[in-house]
């Protein structure tokens, strides 16, 4: 099976982000980047499928800056076989323009399965995977937690409010990945070394004219300082009074 996994980098989720002086972008200075967590979950699922279906191969497709090669190498170490690095220092904040570039590349590979994270935790747009599927006219199931493969069919599990939708689909297909039951494997030094020998093709993107643009970034208003109502069980009646009379939420 030919599998593609699309990955991108995002700022480390444990740090605060700083708005750049232009007021429209994020200050990249000193920011550590990591693989988007949902892309990593997707890669783990792809590696599991590869282990199950003999002769499978995983190609990473990554639209990231030149200097983000570390991200690609780490993903190769987790279990991909080769990569296409589409180099762009300024990726427009326009999902349609991004999806068109990725679709163009993915079309060339005739993949049986294409995985995306359900969203990237930078701009939280939550749309590129589904748009790529529509451009390529492929079936797409979004927000899947995990999969079962048998007899050429894939069963995909998708979380909805208060339940799980179970879908059956025959490849070729696009999946977007929710956090699921499987922990992402941690690459060992040996695998990190081996990743350096895996092929990485590089390309340049051609973006279409954007129809979306950021006009302003700002920080949300800080929450007003809260108060400690008290200590232990004795504080409970006062808390209930405050929730009732001051906050009016119960």
């Amino acid at each position: 099976m030919k599998i593609a996994v699309c990955i991108k980098q995002v700022p480390d989720t444990s740090v605060r982000v700083k708005i750049a002086p232009d007021g429209k972008s994020i200050d990249a200075a000193g920011v550590e980047h990591v693989i988007n967590p949902y892309d990593e979950y997707a890669l783990e699922e792809a590696v599991r499928l590869k282990e199950q279906v003999a002769g499978s191969e995983i190609t990473l497709v990554s639209l990231v800056p030149d200097k983000a090669q570390q991200i690609v190498l780490k993903a190769l170490a987790i279990g991909a076989d080769k990569a296409v690095h589409i180099k762009a220092d300024n990726v427009p904040n326009d999902s349609l323009a991004v999806a068109k570039v990725l679709a163009e590349e993915l079309k060339l590979g005739s993949y049986d399965m294409i995985f995306f994270g359900k969203k990237a935790v930078d701009y939280d747009n939550h749309q590129v995977g589904a748009i790529v599927a529509e451009i390529l006219n492929l079936p797409c199931i979004t927000g899947c937690t995990h999969y079962e493969y048998s007899g050429g069919k894939i069963t995909a599990y998708r979380e909805i409010e208060g339940g799980v939708e179970v879908y059956e689909v025959v490849p070729p297909v696009v999946f977007t990945q929710e956090k699921g039951p499987h922990e992402v494997r941690y690459p060992q030094l040996r695998e990190l070394m081996a990743a350096r020998k895996k092929p990485i093709a590089t390309k340049q993107p051609n973006f279409s004219a954007p129809i979306m643009q950021t006009v302003e970034l700002s920080y949300p208003p800080p929450r007003p300082a809260g108060k400690i109502v008290g200590k232990g069980v004795e504080a409970v009646p006062e808390l209930v009074r405050l929730l009732r009379e001051e906050a009016k939420v119960i």
Binding site: D124, I211, M212
Partner: peptide
Amino acid sequence: GTAMGKDIAPRIAAKIDAGLATD
């Protein structure tokens, strides 16, 4: 912006070349 809404909105956006703002 529910599970269904987030699934269907980008598909429509793709088909009519529309911009989509999430959440």
